[in-house]
Design a protein around this nucleic acid. Structure first.
Length: 513
RNA sequence: GGCCGGAUAGCUCAAUGGUAGAGCAGUUGACUUUUAAUCAAUUGGUUCGGGGUUCGAGUCCCCGUCCGGCCA
């Protein structure tokens, strides 16, 4: 290695641009961080080193290094670590360098004694915050107790020609956090952990369902009829088939076809798309788990979802209590409260006769309760559901199964025996949000057709005839469950916004680009 | 769609209508156990875009763009 030092700083009275050297003067461009780093890259290449053609053998990650040096032991084995440089503290002939790998941060110790002139001419001059390096050396413990790699050798294996965000405040601009999530992941540990938890939640869900002998399947995202929920779909077009498609708004109708086909325990974790408002709780694309189990019903789904959430929570967080950003603790362990929809409404309105009131009386009551006036074209049940959605659901912080829901709200569920007005379903509410609905699935093709026709009204093209045909071939009695994965992760991480648990949330095109 | 708030150096933020600043990052130097290292010096600005008011606009007014929040 024969590196020439950077050109010396010119005398103070030298005007800008007066540098006669062949190489661009870093002093002259020191305000332009991109240019400075490009110049360093050019110097590396001029010296026969190309960081983009280099690599490094990673023998250990940061979390493993700590275990290799137990308390009381002075020096550990040699390790070879690699990661992004996120901190450099130079103190003359010795420096501390922190690198970030998939497990976290590993400190390394660089000295002139070990690295000779390369320490001054290469490390100090050409390695920047944000670069990727590999470091080989023995572990030791600093006097403050931090396990550190004493660098015997290191290599520059990728150069960042753009700077990292500020090290202390990190990245706070909301748009940049979402648009340049990679930077957020590098500098904001909270974001990194939150999104890693999401991944572990999904892993844990799969393991749980596999242990219950569920089969994981993949069903189409392009639907000719957007069914299984009430939502406005995204539309697209197939050139090859010369027809329009909708992006799916639910997984339900294809998973039920799997039940018809004899896959009697089946689930899918998949992206669904709804062309509706974007908010703190709503993303145009989000991830649903739907699971269907034959020969059980919504009561069976209660046990399934409670076990699932409790198992996942314990496995990922190591406990069953989660804390909201406002400090309120939510206990997910033990049995969960059950409450009938009608009882909650009567309790909240203080009107035992609520369900025999006229629509006009209900609308008047809504105004009294401080709600915006419901639209007059709403159906009677929609006025009542406004009270549930606005005044009851947000208060259900502790896990609550809301049961005996009006049948108009869920056309795909079985009607309760002995009460024609309700259906055998629950809505699991936690953290003031609907986390998981579950049904005793409707498998009577005649009743199902009637319910879908009522829901579709004049828009008969919205009826999935192929699904009804499948039902006519016979679907076993089954319980079905849906879980909004994003909302579950919000619950488990204490996130404030659905976008904080989605790596790359939906954004419009970057107008500044 | 409505209302409110925001956009200033690479990043995080200041700036009564009167010379656009600080910290970090960068550059130069000192420093062999730091923890936001420290110390000294120093570079860096189309104040989101377009109009207007004014002797003078980052600041006030109008229009627009984008972002965020609340509501629908």
């Amino acid at each position: 290695m024969n590196l020439s030092p950077l050109p010396a700083r010119p005398p103070k009275d030298t005007p800008k641009g007066a540098n006669m050297s062949d190489k661009p003067d870093l002093n002259a461009i020191s305000h332009d961080l991109h240019a400075v780093r490009l110049e360093k890259l050019a110097q590396l290449r001029a010296n026969g080193e190309d960081p983009f053609r280099a690599n490094w053998n990673q023998s250990h990650i940061s979390s493993e290094c700590a275990k290799l040096l137990p308390e009381g032991v002075e020096e550990g084995p040699e390790v070879s670590v690699a990661g992004r440089v996120v901190a450099i503290r130079v103190m003359g002939k010795a420096s501390f360098v922190k690198i970030l790998d998939r497990a976290g941060i590993q400190q390394c110790y660089f000295t002139r004694d070990a690295l000779t002139e390369r320490y001054d001419t290469h490390f100090k001059k050409l390695v920047d915050l944000g670069d990727f390096i590999g470091v080989r050396g023995k572990l030791f413990r600093t006097k403050t107790g931090e396990v550190t790699v004493r660098a015997a050798d290191y290599g520059l294996v990728s150069k960042a020609v753009r700077p990292l965000p500020e090290k202390w405040a990190g990245l706070t601009d909301a748009e940049k956090i979402y648009r340049q999530r990679y930077l957020d992941l590098v500098v904001n540990e909270e974001s990194r952990n939150r999104l890693l938890i999401r991944s572990r939640v999904i892993e844990s869900i799969r393991k749980f369902l596999w242990s219950r002998q569920f089969t994981e399947v993949e069903t189409p995202a392009l639907h000719s009829v957007a069914g299984g929920a009430a939502a406005r779909p995204f539309e697209t077009h197939s050139n090859a088939l010369d027809c329009d498609f909708y992006l799916r708004i639910a997984l339900e109708l294809h998973l039920k076809r799997c039940l018809v086909g004899g896959m009697d325990r089946v689930f899918e974790i998949g992206r669904v798309f709804r062309n509706e408002g974007v908010s703190i709780k709503h993303s145009p694309e989000f991830t649903m788990l739907e699971a269907y189990q034959a020969y059980t019903d919504y009561r069976g789904m209660m046990e399934l979802v409670r076990s699932l959430i409790q198992t996942v929570c314990k496995e990922v967080l190591g406990q069953t209590v989660v804390t909201r950003p406002d400090g309120v603790a939510i206990e997910l362990g033990g049995e969960w409260r059950e409450a009938k929809y009608k009882d909650l409404i009567i309790e909240r309105t203080g009107d035992a006769q609520w369900f025999s009131r006229s629509k006009e009386e209900k609308i008047a009551a809504c105004k009294k309760l401080g709600l915006e006036e419901p639209r007059t074209d709403w159906e009677d049940f929609e006025v009542t559901n406004e009270i549930f959605g606005k005044l009851i659901e947000p208060t259900l912080l502790q896990p609550t199964f809301v049961t005996h829901i009006p049948k108009e709200l869920c056309p795909l569920a079985k009607v309760t025996v002995g009460d024609d007005s309700t259906i055998d379903v629950f809505e699991l509410c936690i953290n003031g949000q609907e986390i998981a609905p579950a049904y005793s699935e409707q498998n009577d093709p005649g009743v199902q057709r009637k319910m879908l026709e009522i829901q579709a009204g004049a828009e008969t093209q919205k009826i999935d005839e192929d699904f009804l045909l499948a039902l006519e071939h016979g679907m076993p009695p089954a319980g079905g469950l849906g879980i909004g994965i994003d909302r579950l992760v919000i619950l488990l991480t204490g996130a404030a916004n659905i976008r904080d648990v989605i790596l790359f949330p939906t954004l419009g095109p970057d107008k500044n680009a």
